[in-house]
Amino acid sequence: MYFESFASLIHMDGHGMYVWPTYGIGLLIIAYNIISPLRARKRIVAQIQRQVRGSQSRSKSFSQNNSLSQKKSFSHKKSHSPAADHQPGATDDLSEKKKAAGPRVKVSTKNQGVREGEVE
């Protein structure tokens, strides 16, 4: 190391009070650039998960309602209900969602909409 002692490394012949805060601020900016995208990812993934779950329960209750009210085509409807081959998000529209799961979905639609995620 160029400096003989830890003390001289901190002091840097008087320039330490410029150099070290600078590197501190640098570290903060580097940390921001790592933490911000990671937090955004968590948030978005959670949002999408809620949305998927929301529409899955919607499609379940939807098919249940149908099977209860239309006994004639009971078996026919049931074969269409499983979430596996149904693309939960593909045919969504806002009004259907609002009917289904209430406040939970409301939150996610508010954020989803046409205004894509915020820059953090």
Binding site: P37, A40, R41, I44, Q112, E116, G117
Partner: peptide, 12 residues
């Protein structure tokens, strides 16, 4: 990192 999240968001 940011792009991947943005992709998930827009292609949700």
């Amino acid at each position: 990192l940011r792009l991947r999240t943005e992709i998930l968001d827009r292609e949700r």
